[in-house]
Design a protein around this nucleic acid. Structure first.
Lengths: 127, 127
DNA sequence: GTTCTCTATAAGTCAAACCTTATGAAGGAG
DNA sequence: CTCCTTCATAAGGTTTGACTTATAGAGAAC
């Protein structure tokens, strides 16, 4: 939870998430896209991706020498639920918006991936 | 947008928002509540409140020498919409979850302000 | 094998941001 | 008016965090 919102607090990292909302991409493409917006080095982007990874906001899949990053719906859901609970304290109990967000996120992932649960290497750290 | 997520990145500030989700409170009460969780000075809390204020996440109302803080649904809505758009890029167009979040936030505000909509007799908020 | 590509980590620098003590401004009480 | 309360701002110190250059490791191409 702490890690999630801390990760979201950085503009570059939010931009990376926006890029990933179009679908999974190799680190190289993310570096190129980030450098198109503002001058930034490859290691800087790599470090940002590490933060997002450890926060549980993105997942990585290795293919050869490339690392494909994708949004992690679970992490996003945690942030969404917290904000929704703030707006209306009853929401987390009645769960109307909460459940809807989960639905959307999950549906989006399975629809996009078309495959199931590859071996999950890097550890996910609780927030 | 930048200011909003930057403000949300700080644990103390998120705690203050949680406290405010129970309703508007004077700064003093927020200081006391914050100090209950961890040792922190009054000016530190005041500075955090300033950040939240400038980010558009809270509003202030002066009454005598006291300042009553409250959640600003508009700011929360911006954060919610951004996250929802991430989870499903189509959401901002089709606006299912987006509209729902707005409804919730607005309903909450007008309900609290006592403008219209007499209470529907449901129980007051539980734990 | 050698080399080139792709990505992550190491080490160091610099700026942002958080916290503290001290103080000031404004309203209410005596 | 004087004092006390409530809250904000000022100034300064310290830590956190983001960036850069340099380098290492793994796989693909030659």
């Amino acid at each position: 939870m702490d890690g999630i919102f801390h990760a979201l607090g950085e503009p570059v990292r939010r931009h990376l998430l926006e890029l990933l909302s179009a679908g999974e991409q190799p680190a190289g493409a993310l570096v190129a896209a980030a450098q198109e917006r503002a001058p930034i080095s490859q290691p800087a982007v790599s470090q940002h991706l590490k933060v997002l990874r450890e926060a549980g906001l993105v997942t990585v899949r290795a293919e050869g020498t490339r690392r494909f990053y994708a949004l992690d719906p679970d992490g996003l859901q945690v942030a969404l639920a917290w904000l929704a609970g703030l707006a209306d304290p009853l929401a987390p109990f009645a769960q109307p918006l909460d459940a809807l967000a989960t639905e959307v996120a999950r549906g989006r992932r399975t629809r996009r991936a078309g495959k199931e649960e590859p071996p999950q290497g890097s550890g996910r750290r609780p927030a």
